[in-house]
Design a binder for these strands. Structure first.
Length: 636
DNA sequence: TTTAGGG
DNA sequence: CCCTAAA
C-alpha cells in the first residue's frame, strides 16, 4: 500500500493510546466456537428426567447429588446451606420467606425440578413442536420458511470468523463491505443468522419493526396471540414473539398454576418481592457446585438458604462436555427448582444473561433482568465471553452468581405473580415456556438491603393501576388474575403493597414502552463495515451508510449506525483500558478517528459524492505502540 | 423519514 | 439503545 496522504486533521490531537491492547481479547478466549452450540435451550422438567439424563450423561460427575431435595442431594450442599444461612438476612418483607409453609413448598418444588438445558443440537426443545429452527425475526415478518440459504456472495470480504481479524489484517481492498446480517458475533445464535438471511431484500427494517413494536404493545398483543415462536436467544423479534407466547402460556399455565400452586403464589409474591430471585449457580464442570455469594450474592445464597434446596445437579459433569468448552451449571432457587444451563465459554456474558433470563423468565414470568455475579462482583460487560470474564470450566464457577433484577424485561402481567414453573407446562408445552406471562415484575421492591440499588431500581414506580395490565393484556387471564390478586391481598399488607407496585410497572412498561430491543453489540466486522462506509460517505449520511453497508442487517438502523459511530469515536479517544466490550482493533479505531476528523473538517455532510476514496489509514503497527507519534496515513 | 443530539 | 426536536 502506498502511503499517499497524510491525515493531518485531528490525529495530532488525538492521543491514541498506545497502550497495548489490553488483554481483554486475549484473555483466554478459547476457540470461538460456534456460537450456535450454546444456543439451544430446552426445558425439561421433571427431576426424574433430569436424573436420568444426568445418569446417562455421565456418571463421572463428581458430585452426584442429582437429586435436589433437601440437602441430601449435594454433597457440598451442606456447606452451601450453612453459608446461606449465614448470609440470609430476612428483609422486612421477607418474613414470609421463612415460613414453614414456604419451606414445604420449596421442598416440594424441588421435586418437580425443571431442567433446562442448552444443547447444541437444536432448539428442539424437546417436544415442542415448535422447534423453530428459523424463527422469524419479527413476528410480523413473514413466517418464512426457514432458512433461506445465505448468499455468500454478498458478504464480501467479511472474514467469516471474527477471530481472524487481527489487528491490522483487514482486507485492504475496498470492496464494499456489506454486512448481511450475519452475526458473526458470538452473541447470537444461528437463529439470528437464519433470520437475517432471508431478509436480504427488504430493509424496512428497524423502522418498521419499531413501529410494529409499539403497536404490538397495545393491540397487537392481544391480537397476535398465538404464534409460537419459541426462540431463545432471539434478539429483537424474539421478545415480541415471546410476548405472544407468554400470553398463551399464561393462559395455559395460569390455570394450572392456580390450581396447583395457589399457596405458593403468596409466597412467591412475598419472596419475590424480597428478592427471592436469588439464584445460585453451580458449575457442573469442574467445580463442584458451590453457592455463590458475593455482595449481592446474597441473593443466591439466600434463596438457597431459604429453601434449603440443594442443588440437584451437582457435580454432574455435563454430558456434552466434549463439544467445546462449555460452561455448565445449574441454578436453583425455590422458585426455580432446577435450571441446568450449558453455554460455551465463547458465549458472551450478555448471552449468558440472556440465557439465564430466558430460562428464568419462562419460569417466573419475566419482568426481570438477570445479572451475573462473579466473585461477588457484577459483571456488566455483556460483550465479553465467559472465558474472558473468567467464567469457564477451568475457573471455578464457584463464584458465579446471578441476580434477578427488575428489568425492562417486560413482564406483561398481571398482578399475580406467576408461577413457579409448572412442570407440566414446561414439559408439555415448551412453546409456551418462554412466554410466560411475565409476572409482574417480580422482584420489584426488594426491601432487602442486600439487593442494592442496582437491582431494584425500577421497581418502585407505582404506576397506574394494577389491574389494567391484567385486563388489557391477558384477555383470558383477567379473571383469574384478578382473583388471584384478591387472594393475595389478604395475605399481608406487604403483599398488598407489593402488588400495587409491581403490576403497575410491567404494565406500563410493556404497554407503553415497547420492548426495548435486545442489545446487540456490533461485531468487529460490523464496525469494519461501518468505518469503511463512513470513510467513503462521510458522517451525516447515515441512511446512505445504512444502505451501503448494512442494508441487509435489518437490526441496524441508520440511527443505530449513527450511534455506533458516536461511540466509536468516543472509544477511539479513550484508553484501551477504559474500553469495554469486544475490543475493536486499534486499526479500526484509528480509522475512526481519521474519518471523524476528516469529515468533521470537511463538513462533508452534504457533499454527496465526496469519496475520500479510500480513506485508509495504514498504520504500521505503530498505533499500538506509539501514540500520536505515528501519524496515520491514508492511502488513496 | 432523516438528522442530530441528549439521555 | 431510546426518545425527540427539527428539518
Amino acid at each position: 500500500m502506498v502511503f499517499k496522504k497524510r491525515l493531518d486533521y485531528g490525529f495530532n490531537t488525538f492521543n491514541v493510546p498506545n497502550v497495548p491492547r489490553a488483554p481483554r481479547s486475549n484473555r483466554r478466549c478459547r476457540s470461538k466456537q460456534s456460537v450456535e452450540d450454546s444456543q439451544i435451550c430446552a426445558f425439561e422438567l421433571l427431576a426424574s428426567l433430569a436424573r436420568k439424563l444426568l445418569q446417562e450423561s455421565e456418571s463421572s460427575a463428581s458430585s452426584n447429588a442429582s437429586e435436589g431435595h433437601n440437602g441430601a442431594a449435594a454433597s457440598e450442599s451442606t456447606t452451601e446451606n450453612s453459608d446461606i444461612v449465614k448470609e440470609f438476612k430476612p428483609a422486612k418483607g421477607d418474613r414470609n420467606l421463612c415460613s414453614p409453609l414456604l419451606e414445604d413448598l420449596c421442598v416440594g418444588k424441588s421435586e418437580n425440578g425443571f431442567k433446562q438445558e442448552r444443547d447444541a443440537k437444536g432448539l428442539d426443545i424437546g417436544k415442542s413442536g415448535i422447534a423453530n429452527t428459523c424463527p422469524s425475526k419479527d413476528p410480523f415478518e413473514s413466517p418464512m420458511t426457514c432458512p433461506a440459504p445465505l448468499n455468500s456472495k454478498r458478504d464480501v470480504n467479511l472474514p467469516s470468523r471474527r477471530d481472524p481479524i487481527p489487528n491490522a489484517s483487514f482486507p485492504r481492498h475496498r470492496n464494499n463491505i456489506k454486512l448481511v446480517s450475519r452475526d458473526d458475533d458470538e452473541n447470537f445464535s444461528r437463529f439470528n443468522r437464519l433470520n437475517y438471511r432471508f431478509k436480504t431484500s427488504r430493509r424496512p427494517t428497524r423502522i418498521g419493526e419499531r413501529r410494529i413494536r409499539k403497536l404490538l404493545t397495545s393491540k397487537y398483543w392481544k391480537v397476535a396471540p398465538k404464534l409460537k415462536d419459541f426462540e431463545h436467544s432471539k434478539a429483537d423479534g424474539g421478545m415480541k414473539a415471546q410476548y405472544r407466547k407468554r400470553k398463551t402460556y399464561y393462559n395455559y399455565d395460569r390455570y394450572q398454576y392456580d390450581t396447583l400452586y395457589k399457596k405458593r403464589k403468596f409466597f412467591d409474591r412475598s419472596s419475590i418481592v424480597t428478592s427471592d430471585g436469588g439464584i445460585s449457580s453451580e458449575s457442573v464442570c469442574n467445580s463442584p457446585e458451590k453457592v455463590v455469594d458475593g455482595d449481592k450474592g446474597s441473593y443466591a445464597s439466600m434463596s438457597h438458604g431459604v429453601c434449603g434446596i440443594p442443588p440437584l445437579l451437582t457435580g454432574n459433569k455435563a454430558s456434552h462436555q466434549s463439544k467445546d468448552s462449555h460452561v455448565k451449571f445449574s441454578i436453583k432457587s425455590f422458585r426455580i427448582p432446577e435450571l441446568y444451563i450449558e453455554v460455551p465459554e465463547s458465549a458472551t456474558v450478555g448471552s449468558l444473561k440472556r440465557t439465564v433470563m430466558e430460562a428464568v423468565t419462562a419460569l417466573l414470568g419475566g419482568g426481570i433482568r438477570v445479572g451475573v455475579l462473579l466473585q461477588g462482583k457484577k459483571v456488566r460487560d455483556d460483550n465479553r465471553t465467559l472465558s474472558q470474564t473468567g467464567i469457564s470450566c477451568e475457573d471455578n464457577l464457584d463464584s458465579l452468581g446471578f441476580t434477578l433484577e427488575p428489568g425492562p424485561a417486560k413482564a406483561p402481567p398481571p398482578v399475580c405473580s406467576e408461577e413457579p414453573p409448572l412442570p407440566i407446562s414446561c414439559d408439555i408445552a415448551p412453546q409456551h415456556l418462554t412466554s410466560f406471562p411475565a409476572t409482574p415484575v417480580v422482584d420489584t421492591e426488594i426491601p432487602d438491603a442486600t439487593s442494592g440499588p442496582l437491582l431494584l431500581t425500577n421497581s418502585v414506580h407505582p404506576v397506574d393501576t394494577n389491574h389494567e395490565p391484567v385486563t388489557s393484556q391477558t384477555d383470558v387471564l383477567t379473571d383469574q388474575s384478578l382473583l388471584e390478586s384478591r387472594a393475595i391481598v389478604p395475605v399481608s399488607a406487604m403483599n398488598v403493597e407489593a402488588l400495587a407496585v409491581i403490576p403497575a410497572i410491567p404494565k406500563v412498561r410493556k404497554s407503553e414502552l415497547a420492548q426495548r430491543r435486545t442489545r446487540r453489540p456490533f461485531s468487529v466486522l460490523e464496525v469494519e463495515a461501518l468505518v469503511q462506509a463512513v470513510e467513503e460517505l462521510g458522517t451525516g449520511r447515515w441512511r446512505d451508510i445504512k444502505l451501503r453497508a448494512f442494508e441487509n442487517a435489518d437490526h441496524r438502523t441508520y440511527v443505530d449506525l449513527k450511534d455506533k459511530w458516536k461511540t466509536l469515536v468516543h472509544t477511539a479517544k479513550i484508553s484501551p483500558q477504559q474500553r469495554r466490550g469486544e475490543p475493536v482493533p486499534q486499526e479500526l479505531l484509528d480509522r475512526v478517528l481519521a474519518a471523524h476528523a476528516y469529515w468533521s473538517q470537511h463538513q462533508a455532510k452534504q457533499q454527496g459524492k465526496h469519496q475520500p476514496g479510500t480513506l485508509r489509514i495504514t498504520d504500521g503497527e505503530s498505533d499500538r505502540n506509539g501514540v500520536a507519534t505515528t501519524v496515520p496515513t491514508v492511502s488513496v
